[in-house]
Design a protein around this nucleic acid. Structure first.
Lengths: 171, 171
DNA sequence: GCAATCTAATTCGGTAACGAACTATTCGTC
DNA sequence: GACGAATAGTTCGTTACCGAATTAGATTGC
């Protein structure tokens, strides 16, 4: 087994199949995009499976983590921004988390429109507990690359995302 | 402007913020994963915006494309596999597409459990029409890399996905 | 040749997400 | 200081999705 490992994943098949359907298809672009999509889906699936053990749904865990990322206290609109969803969707998530005793809503005294959302002790415990089981998969998958390769990957993706964040046209 | 371009994206801020919260956090792993997630979200958003012009929703377009990828004819269960969703969800999508006249369901004569789903002329036209407007964004974003860099990116991601597809444990 | 098992697609019930409209409060300005 | 605009959060109605159960037909075993 020399240095030339012949590697193959399901995306290679996908690209080959579509190359026969769409003639002008860049295999590296289609391959990279498809792999990223599938990577994200894979991570999501593994996370879901891991979370059942902690009696949490992904949307619950994500919400707790968004709160944890703000040191356990945030406004609903801040969570909406962090989670990339409309604020009314956050309302529903908070209702459920509040029912489970994981968060607490306290109205602001200075601005009576505002609400402060806080992690309860149980909420923080649930988050930290589940965090132990979740997130290993990213390390397992990227752990197959060397440190330099991971750096290269992250750098290339940064170059891509800088373009994405430029947003050429917004009507 | 020499060779050392200082590049920065929103994920750098994200990683910096979380590095202060979780001490054992590999910046390259967290950076790469976060960028992939955001890349996929970005592509999804741009696609949605582009599709309104063609009066299609993403799930409709994706379903038409799955059918197109099978040369316009497939079983519901095949579509379910290609789309990565349970078959009953496909039923709902096909109901809607059939109402719009984009697909046609014809029962198999040899096996009366089976149903053949086919793209109608209008369905194929809608798919091909929308495909023109969708998918540019991937090329715009990855077009900022050189050909070699795109190859490197795709190869690194393949190495990652080979690990994902090994699935160490499945109960 | 008939019962048991498997398979394909669907129906059903429930849930989370979204856009739009709504309520309550604060800000800005004349 | 009052009235219009802006802001924060929520409510409402609709939709897509999912797991579980269901229907109908094919296949296997004896």
């Amino acid at each position: 087994m020399g240095g030339t490992e012949e590697l193959h994943d399901r995306t290679d098949d996908h690209v080959a199949r579509w190359a026969g359907i769409l003639s002008d298809l860049d295999p590296d672009i289609e391959g990279a995009v498809t792999r990223m999509v599938r990577f994200v889906e894979h991570i999501r699936r593994v996370k879901d499976r891991s979370l059942v053990e902690y009696d949490l749904h992904r949307h619950e865990y994500d919400t707790l983590q968004a709160l944890g990322g703000r040191h356990g206290s945030a406004a609903p609109s801040e969570l909406a921004a962090d989670l990339g969803m409309p604020p009314n969707s956050v309302t529903g998530r908070l209702d459920a988390l509040e029912r489970r005793g994981f968060v607490r809503r306290t109205p602001s005294r200075t601005d009576r429109r505002r609400v402060r959302v806080e992690l309860t002790h149980e909420g923080r415990a649930a988050w930290l507990g589940a965090m132990g089981g979740v997130g290993h998969e990213e390390y397992r998958l990227l752990g197959g690359l060397t440190e330099d390769e991971r750096r290269t990957l992250s750098d290339l993706l940064r170059r891509v995302m800088v373009r994405a964040e430029q947003e050429p046209r917004n009507p």
